[in-house]
Design a protein around this nucleic acid. Sequence first.
DNA 1: GAAAATTTGTCCGTATGTATT
DNA 2: AAATACATACGGACAAATTTT
Lengths: 244, 244
Amino acid sequence: MVGQKIQRQTGVALWRQIADRIRTSISHGDFDETGMVPPETTLALQFGVNRHTIRSALGALAQEGIVRAVQGRGTLIERKERLSFPISKRTRFSQGIGDQVRETRSVLLASSEEPANAELSGQLKVDVGTKLVRLETLGQADHRPVSRATSWFPADRFGDIAEIYRTTGSITKAFRELGVPDYVRVVTEITATHADESDLSDLQLSPGAIVLVAQALNADLDDVPVQYSISRFAADRVRFTVEN
Amino acid sequence: MVGQKIQRQTGVALWRQIADRIRTSISHGDFDETGMVPPETTLALQFGVNRHTIRSALGALAQEGIVRAVQGRGTLIERKERLSFPISKRTRFSQGIGDQVRETRSVLLASSEEPANAELSGQLKVDVGTKLVRLETLGQADHRPVSRATSWFPADRFGDIAEIYRTTGSITKAFRELGVPDYVRVVTEITATHADESDLSDLQLSPGAIVLVAQALNADLDDVPVQYSISRFAADRVRFTVEN
DNA sequence: GAAAATTTGTCCGTATGTATT
DNA sequence: AAATACATACGGACAAATTTT
């Protein structure tokens, strides 16, 4: 918690910087002994700001459901979560975090058909204009959203994948039904950026939050690309682990 | 460039959000045809803000050395960088990005000895209190800082690593001189957070920027841990790629 | 070369958000 | 709760430099 100073006049309000730092500390387990955030006056002293500013920060965290202020007692930590997502040859959403949460679920938000543009054709190794199925999905762990993904599949092989996914809630099962018994992760690209508007609503984030973006390519056992996806994770809820 | 809307009253100033988006577009190659950013009036219309707000955003990017405004002509793109860092069994700083830049260099910022705490002892598989060498290093590509790392090594095997690293500028070479001909990446954990004060100065970032944090464990060929490191990368300058 | 159009630079003022006291 | 100071964002107007016509 200590260490870095708060920056003024940077385009990022003090209350937001402090909220981000406290959120990180909570997910880091810094306050696990008491289960509470330090008193507002203590935080104000630590961060070198006025207590009002601390209250703005804690108010934002309360809005996110991370803390709950109780008059006379203090500010209780309601939730601290940072799921670990393994990235490997056999990366799958539900299996990877299955042992960290009670229930994982995938929800189909939307689906459509669209022609491959330059980027998609390059990734999936199809001609530009080839028909693709696009799925918009939401990954949940214990009823809380953790990832929002857009996936593309060649329509000739996987034209019905939306319907199968809707009923099974699993890409792996949908692939199996469509004649792909197994698939492997070819490459994953990881970047980070600020949350955009749809991240905010889909992942239930507060504005200014950070999202980890994973662009992944999956191929069948003959090395033919079957899925290209762009997944966005709430950075303060997940961590990627690459094991070699 | 299009897509997400700009968020108001979120604690993150509009000019900062816009600067982040333009920076991403530049590194994405969106303006490669002209080598210039669109005119301020065009951007103002696109983002739905006043031209002055666009000027604040472009001013921040000019401060970073990414663009340069020329009266009467437009705003020229000076530099577009997003280095790709491969993460694999044989991950090394200089080799991985060697083909993307002309020159890579590592600089030793500081070194010290310290006893292993609970976390470090768990990672390096040594007893708590075991003497470790800590190195603070800065990775540069073409004279621009890209990563800032803190590394720990067991002092019994690598007591002199600081001195050797200072002269060679390479962990790989230092290991070799100290009897470790080769080493492999065991695991890498990736998270993202806001830049802290030392990130800002070491990586020459503007406040509010995002850093990708990679916690890595390296082991020798007998699977004995030799290095645990926490590296911080400017998120808008790098991308991690995991190839399976 | 001259005029027009385009684009960045600077100035004024006003309203709102942020942070402190 | 209120007063104060500063940062942020907007709107308009004009100047200066460059490109286009």
